[in-house]
């Protein structure tokens, strides 16, 4: 269970506050206007940004002082989710072990997880030899190998076309959420949210609102969300 306690982040004029709990197994979309702080919220949870006040904890364990890799979290960024100079196999191996060692057992695990995301036999390729959608699949495969209970998606599929993006979101939910992981994903598209999210966090006017069930929220949006959605 992810808990944000009186979390405050300030960067110059920008400020963001959050104080809520996200239940285990939730698939939660983070929505709100550009520049509202959606990515900042994820960066603070992932540990790339030290909050000015408050605490981040997981299952009662405080994370605030831990480095990103020490947290029970894996994250996909908008871009640069794979090292372009390494093969897919090596990229995935780094998800198992930062030393990047490969042995027969690990090769087998990598082959299995690549098969799950539809990239069978692509081990030796460099990311540049893959399409955008395939690169996203490879990044998802690494998240699977890292096997962390909380997965943050900071719009990793934003550069894909709408059809492909939906496909990747479905795949992400199927392979990640299906195993009881908690997903927190930035989203710009209410359709995306309606399609896969169980909950929505609205980020606006310096606050990240507590997660609320997605279907009723989208059916009858509060004024801030209504303004953002343009209804």
């Amino acid at each position: 269970m992810l808990r944000l306690e009186k979390l405050e982040i300030r960067q110059g004029d920008f400020a963001l506050a959050a104080d809520w709990v996200l239940p285990d197994g939730a698939v939660c979309a983070v929505m709100g206007p550009s520049g509202g702080g959606k990515s900042t919220l994820l960066a603070a949870i992932a540990g790339f940004l030290a909050p000015d006040a408050g605490r981040v904890s997981w299952d009662g364990r405080e994370l605030t002082a831990l480095r990103p890799a020490q947290r029970p979290i894996s994250i996909l960024f908008q871009d640069n989710n794979l090292f372009p100079h390494l093969s897919i196999e090596r990229n995935l191996a780094l998800g198992i072990d930062p030393k990047g060692r490969l042995d027969a057992d690990r090769r087998t695990r990598i082959a299995q997880v690549l098969e799950r995301v539809g990239l069978r036999g692509m081990e030796a390729r460099r990311p540049a030899a893959l399409s955008g959608g395939q690169q996203s699949r490879a990044a998802l495969a690494r998240v699977l190998l890292m096997d962390r209970p909380l997965v943050l998606l900071d719009e990793p599929f934003a550069a894909l076309g709408p059809g492909l993006r939906m496909e990747m979101l479905d795949l992400a939910r199927a392979v990640l959420a299906g195993e009881g992981r908690t997903l927190l994903m930035v989203s710009h598209d209410p359709e995306d949210a309606a399609r896969i999210a169980s909950d929505i966090v609205l980020v606006d006017a310096g606050r990240a609102e507590p997660p609320a069930p997605a279907a009723p929220l989208l059916a009858d949006p509060p004024p801030a969300l209504r303004a953002y959605l343009g209804r």
């Binding site: 480095r67 994250i75 640069n80 998800g95 890292m146």
Partner: peptide, 9 residues
Amino acid sequence: RLADSLGLH
């Protein structure tokens, strides 16, 4: 950031 998230030090 990718290296940080993977624990590459």
